[in-house]
Measured scan of single mutants.
Amino acid sequence: MQIFVKGLTGKTTTLEVEPSDTIENVKAKIQDKTGLPPDQQRLIFAGKQLEDGRTLSDYNIQKESTLHIVWR
Rank of each mutant, 00 (worst) to 15 (best):
T66A: 04
Q40F: 11
G35A: 04
P38C: 06
V17Q: 01
L8T: 08
D58P: 00
Q62L: 10
K63P: 15
T55I: 06
L8F: 12
H68F: 13
G35D: 04
I61G: 00
I3F: 01
G47T: 04
D32S: 13
T22A: 05
R72F: 14
L36S: 04
T14R: 10
I23G: 01
W71A: 13
V26N: 00
I69F: 07
E51M: 11
F4I: 06
D52A: 07
M1P: 01
G10Q: 07
L36H: 08
I61A: 01
L36R: 07
R42A: 10
E18L: 15
L67D: 00
I3E: 01
I23H: 01
Q41S: 07
Q2H: 12
Q2V: 14
Y59C: 02
P38W: 13
H68V: 11
D21R: 02
G10F: 09
A28P: 01
L56I: 09
L43S: 00
G35W: 03
L56N: 00
N60I: 03
K48S: 09
D32Y: 11
R72M: 14
E24H: 12
I30V: 06
K11Y: 13
K27C: 02
K48W: 07
G10Y: 05
Q62T: 14
I3K: 00
N25F: 12
D32W: 12
L15A: 02
V5S: 01
M1A: 02
P38Q: 11
Y59W: 02
V17C: 06
E64L: 11
W71Y: 13
I61F: 02
N60E: 06
Q31C: 09
L43T: 01
N25L: 12
T13F: 15
Q49M: 13
G7Q: 09
T55K: 10
L43K: 00
R42Q: 13
K6I: 14
T13K: 05
T14I: 14
V26K: 00
H68W: 12
M1N: 02
K6V: 15
T34H: 07
I30D: 00
D39I: 09
D21K: 01
I44S: 08
T22C: 03
E64R: 08
T9F: 15
I30F: 07
L67P: 00
T9P: 12
P38R: 14
W71S: 12
E16Y: 13
I44M: 13
K29Q: 09
Q49C: 11
D21T: 08
N60A: 07
Q41N: 04
L56W: 02
Q41E: 02
Q31S: 12
R42E: 13
R42L: 14
D21C: 05
R54T: 06
T14Y: 07
Q40R: 13
R42F: 12
T55S: 07
P37S: 10
D21L: 05
D21M: 11
I69Q: 04
W71N: 11
A28D: 06
P19A: 08
Q2M: 13
T12M: 14
K6D: 05
N60M: 07
F45Y: 12
G53S: 10
I61N: 00
A28S: 11
D52C: 04
E16Q: 11
G53C: 06
V5H: 01
S20M: 10
E51N: 06
G47I: 02
E16A: 08
V26P: 00
Q40C: 11
G10M: 08
R72G: 13
D52S: 07
G35Y: 03
T14W: 08
Q49E: 15
D21Q: 04
T66R: 04
M1S: 02
T13Y: 15
D39M: 09
I23M: 03
V70N: 08
E18V: 13
V26L: 13
Q2A: 07
D52Y: 04
D58I: 02
G47F: 04
Q41Y: 15
E51P: 02
D32K: 14
Q62Y: 09
A28I: 13
A46G: 10
V5T: 03
T9Y: 15
L50G: 01
L50K: 00
V5M: 04
T12H: 08
E18Q: 07
G7T: 13
L50A: 02
W71V: 14
K27E: 01
F45R: 02
I44H: 09
T13A: 08
K33E: 08
L67C: 01
Y59G: 01
N60Y: 06
G35L: 04
T22D: 03
M1Y: 12
N25E: 14
L36T: 07
G53T: 09
M1I: 11
N60S: 08
T14P: 08
L67S: 01
Y59S: 02
K27Q: 02
I3A: 01
K63T: 12
T12C: 10
E16K: 08
E51W: 05
G47D: 06
F45S: 03
L15C: 02
D39Q: 10
V70M: 10
R72L: 15
E64F: 14
L50F: 02
D39K: 10
Q40V: 09
T22G: 03
E24M: 13
M1K: 02
G7D: 15
I30Y: 12
P37L: 09
K63I: 06
S57L: 10
T34F: 14
V70W: 11
T12W: 10
A28W: 09
S65H: 06
S57G: 11
S65M: 11
K11N: 12
S65D: 13
T9V: 09
E51K: 09
E16G: 05
P19H: 06
V5R: 01
I3M: 02
K33I: 13
T66S: 05
T22P: 04
I30H: 02
K33Y: 08
R72K: 13
E18A: 12
I69W: 05
G47Y: 04
V70L: 11
Q49G: 07
I69L: 15
G53H: 14
Q41K: 06
E24G: 11
H68P: 01
V17D: 00
P37N: 09
E51H: 08
L36N: 04
I23W: 01
P19I: 08
I69C: 05
Q40Y: 11
P37A: 11
I23K: 00
G53D: 12
L67H: 00
H68G: 05
V5E: 01
S20F: 12
Q62G: 12
D39T: 10
Y59D: 01
G10W: 06
R54G: 05
L43F: 03
Q49L: 15
L43C: 01
R42T: 14
Q62F: 09
Q40T: 08
S65F: 07
A28N: 11
L15V: 08
D21W: 11
F4A: 03
K33R: 09
N60F: 08
L50C: 03
E24V: 06
T12E: 07
T22S: 08
P19N: 05
T22F: 08
G53Y: 09
V70E: 13
V5N: 01
T13N: 06
E64C: 09
T34A: 04
S65Y: 07
E64W: 15
K63Y: 07
T66G: 02
K11C: 11
I44L: 09
K29C: 03
Q31P: 02
T22K: 08
D52P: 06
T34P: 02
I61M: 03
K6N: 06
P37H: 12
L36Q: 06
R72P: 14
L15I: 12
N25V: 14
I3C: 02
R72Q: 14
G47E: 05
P38V: 15
P37D: 07
G7S: 12
F4Q: 05
Q2Y: 13
I69H: 03
G53Q: 10
Q62K: 11
T22W: 04
I61Q: 01
L36V: 14
A46E: 15
E24C: 06
I44C: 10
T12L: 14
T9S: 13
V70F: 12
E24R: 14
